[in-house]
Amino acid sequence: MTERYPGYNVLHKRNSVSWNDQTRAVIDARCGIDPDFHQFCDEAEWKTLRSLCDHIIPQPLDRPVKAPIAAIIDQKLYGGKGDGYRDAHLPEQDKAWRLGLAAVDAEAMAACEKPFCELSADQQHWLLGKIQRGQASSEAWQDMPPAIFFAKRLLHDIVSAYYAHPASWNEIGFGGPASPRGYVRMNFDRRDPWEAAEASPGREDQARVENERVG
């Protein structure tokens, strides 16, 4: 698949006036997260979590730096900071995740006699679709409704973690941190020189040149 914003890297703005020291510290820490480091998950949970993240957010294989989604989630669960609310059908987020990871694996074992991480991509897709539709039957879910866990915990946490990482911003052409410098050109089809240039058909090379100047 061709990139929409070829050559755009929001991190090139790191030393520009678009970033301040506070932001540099925060983003540096996030980019420095070891993708293999986990404290909350045990080994089995970790494998399942990573496979889930890879499947929900299939990051391009040739991407030089991938967002460490699983590690960001593990860090959040270990730290214990919540979202400020939870659906009454779900237990607290750490319990929900432990239960859910075990249940996803149990579903995989029941259906294919393999843990989730060893399923083929097609099998994973089929299984997650079933869970999303609430068509899961394993005892391992206990009282937790699979569809609510999938929508409000699993998708919510994985997607939040991904779009907190600069790799995702490059993909969607988001301007990223913007303080003290914000933006000037706000009308249709306008970009500041420090914003991502979109590769409309026939303009890929020009967009790449413009994106390499972003800073």
């Binding site: 970033w19 506070q22 510290a25 979202d83 400020g84 609310y85 659906d87 009454a88 941190p177």
Partner: peptide, 30 residues
Amino acid sequence: DFASDEMHQSKLYWTDPRIVDGDNPIQLGA
């Protein structure tokens, strides 16, 4: 104190536990 970062700035929200239910359980927090 403020960074230009959506995740970091969740420090501004009330993230203590609350339970939501009803036909249309509402999102709180942010």
